[in-house]
Amino acid sequence: MLIRRPSDILPSEITPREIYLNRRQWMAGAAGLGLAAAFPGWAEAAPLSAAKSPFSTDEKLTSREDVTSYNNYYEFGVDKDDPAKNAGTLKTSPWTVKIDGLVGKPQEIGIEDLIKSSTLEERIYRMRCVEGWSMVIPWVGFPLSDLIKRAEPLGSAKYVAFETANRPNEMSGLRTVFPVLDWPYTEGLRLDEAMHPLTILAVGLYGETLPNQNGAPIRLVVPWKYGFKGIKSITRISFVEKQPQTAWNKQTPSEYGFYANVNPNVDHPRWSQATERRIGEGGLFAKRRPTLMFNGYAEQVASLYNGMDLKKYY
């Protein structure tokens, strides 16, 4: 396999996967492929071509193994290793995303068509979980704004609501006697947050289609918000006038707000948000690092919240 430095490639160019992945990443990818037999969810992982993005961080990537084995995806269990073990049962093909509500062009798009008609980019983002840990993940996706423009939202549309697949037969976490959350998982963004260039719909990571445990076939990534805003396995995107209900906010409104912007100065009621542990950094003896305002994306997004009391709108 040819491995070449990507120094002479424009961000706008579609770059073959073999070229833009550096050797370390490629080896992690190869290891992932080797494990595909053990994890049924990875069986269908297919390479994706994506252009580099100026929005990417140059921080050290979290290993593919950690990104795909340490997950919060309560539809498949509440332990971090549950999704990698259990998410293989989710059938991600065929898959359609329904776009409805206050739009000029309501539609239902098949995932293959969506990927084919989008310009995929690699976005290397920090991901900060509300639990106090973080990762650096090379997502492959496209700006949510691309899809929103295609749907032609009406002037009355102020918010975007998202819904995860609701399939008890395929999702073991939906079959528990006491539901952990009010299924299906729902999330939402203000329309200007949804239109922000940093907000993407991811269809892959590490140059391949998403493993099921990471939210295949399509998920939201909003890098300046806590990870739980990144709703997985999306089946429906609705444009609405009023702020939509979101799963964690319904579960515990005092702890999980609608906005959920990463903010080291506003603690979770039960734990501090001032610092975080970067997964895979230093093993057992890893030091905490300070959490950055808006997860380090303040320059791009702080203006969205001008004049807002972020302690009130947490």
Binding site: Y70, K80, L284, A286
Partner: peptide, 15 residues
């Protein structure tokens, strides 16, 4: 297991 990196992605938390 913690010292030999067998406690998963977040070994401190697991320990």
């Amino acid at each position: 297991a913690g010292i030999t990196d067998q406690l998963g992605a977040d070994p401190m938390r697991t320990l």
